[in-house]
Design a protein around this nucleic acid. Structure first.
Lengths: 205, 205
DNA sequence: TAGATTGTTAATCGATTAACAATC
DNA sequence: TAGATTGTTAATCGATTAACAATC
C-alpha cells in the first residue's frame, strides 16, 4: 500500500522518532502502547500512523525498535543530509545556528547570512556570517534545500521571495509574519507570541 | 451566545490579531475577505471564527477594524499583563528574553533563571540571571503565570514539575522533550527539529 | 493453550467551506 | 435600487479512537 500519508500523521512522525531514540536500549521491541504513552497520544493512533509507513509489528510482541526508527527516518526523508541556510544572525539566528540537535537528523547549517555590516564577518558556531547579497550564490554552491528565516518581520517576505526564486521551496519562518508564497512552497511558521497567546487564552478557563 | 471557542479557532486568533495590526491605518473597516487573504485562510473560516467572539460586522461593509482587534484581545485574555519566567539562559533563552515582540501583547519577562554558575549573575536584556533554586520564590513574588522552558532536554521535566507545583499551569516548552503533566496544565511545544522534519518530508514529493 | 498486541473497521467527532438568504 | 458583505446552514472532509478478530 503506497497510500498518501496524512498531514497529521507526518507531523507526529518526528515526535515518534524522538521518543524511540529516548527509549533506545530499553528493549529491542516497542509496543504501540509504550510509544503512545511516551508521545502522549492514543495507541490506536500510533498503530494507524505507522501502518502508513508499511511498518509491520508482531502481534503479541510489538514493533522492532530499530526497524521502526529506520522506517520513520525513511518516510521523512532523513536518510540523506539536508543543507540548510539561516538568514538573520541576530539572537534567534545565532541560537539556531548554535543548536546541535539538527545534525542528528541530517540537517546541516551550511551558511548564516545577514544584511547588517556589523554582523557580517563575525563567527557563529564555526561559520562566518556572510552578506545577504551572496544568498543566490551560496544556495547554488551548497545545494541548499531549506531556508530558515530569522530576520526582522519587515525583511521576511523579500528574503522568502529570493529563496524561492533561487529554488529553495522549503522555508521555516521564525519571523512573526505570514508569508505569501506559491502553492508548491512548503512553509512552516514558528511564532512564539502566538504560542503565548494560546496559553493566555487557557489561563482564563 | 457564550459557546465554547474551538481550539482551532483559538490557534488562529493571534494570527488575525497580528494581521489586523499590520493592516492598521489602511481603513477603519476590514472585510472577512481582506483578513482571510492576509492570514492565508478561507473567508468563511474568518467569519465563523470571529462569530464565536460575538463580533458583529456590518453587511455590505465589513468589521470595524479597531473593535475587532479589541474583541480578539479580550477573547485571548490579552487585556491584562502576564508575567512570564524564562528558565535557561543559553542561546535560546537569551534570544527569547531579548525578543521585544512579547511586550506588545502584554507578556512581560520578569526573570531569567539558570543552573549554571557561569551564567548566574550575568545580564540579559536588563535582567540579572538568577539561580534556578530561586524558582519558587520568584514565582510567588512576581505572580508568574507562564513559564518558558529553554533548558537542555534532560532538565525540562524536572523544571516543569517544579513550575506546576508552584502553581504555574501554562508552559511553553522549547526543549525537545515531551513533558508529562497533569491534565489541567497547558503545554505548548515548539520543536524546531520537528518542523525541519516535516519540511524534509515535503521535499520528497 | 493463555496472554498480549497488532491491524483494521466503523463509529464518532470536529473542522472546513460552499452556498445563499438577510441586510447594510 | 444595485452592489457588497455578513451570518449561518448544511454538506463535506479529514482525523481520532473504541472495539475486536487475527495471530504471534
Amino acid at each position: 500500500m503506497k497510500a498518501r500519508i496524512p498531514e497529521a500523521t507526518v507531523a507526529r512522525l518526528p515526535r515518534y522518532l524522538r521518543c524511540l531514540t529516548d527509549m533506545a536500549h530499553t528493549a529491542s521491541t516497542c509496543s504501540s502502547e509504550d510509544l503512545a504513552e511516551a508521545a502522549g497520544v492514543n495507541s490506536a493512533q500510533v498503530r494507524k500512523d505507522v501502518s502508513y509507513l508499511g511498518a509491520q509489528g508482531t502481534r503479541g510482541v510489538g514493533y522492532d525498535h530499530e526497524e521502526l526508527r529506520s522506517q520513520i527516518r525513511k518516510a521523512l526523508g532523513l536518510t540523506m543530509p539536508h543543507p540548510v541556510i539561516v538568514i538573520g544572525a541576530g539572537n534567534m539566528g545565532t541560537a539556531l545556528t548554535n543548536y546541535k540537535g539538527f545534525k542528528t537528523w541530517g540537517f546541516e547549517i551550511v551558511a548564516v547570512l545577514d544584511i547588517d555590516e556589523d554582523r557580517i564577518g563575525s563567527r557563529v558556531d564555526g561559520l562566518t556570517v556572510e552578506p545577504l547579497q551572496n544568498l543566490e550564490k551560496i544556495i547554488a554552491a551548497k545545494n541548499v534545500e531549506i531556508g530558515i528565516l530569522a530576520t526582522p518581520p519587515a525583511a521576511a517576505q523579500s528574503v522568502a521571495d529570493r529563496l524561492t526564486a533561487a529554488g529553495v521551496n522549503s522555508i521555516l519562518n521564525l519571523a512573526p509574519t505570514i508569508l505569501k508564497t506559491d502553492a508548491e512552497v512548503s512553509v512552516r511558521r514558528v511564532d512564539l507570541s502566538t504560542e503565548l497567546g494560546i496559553l493566555a487564552f487557557h489561563l482564563q478557563s
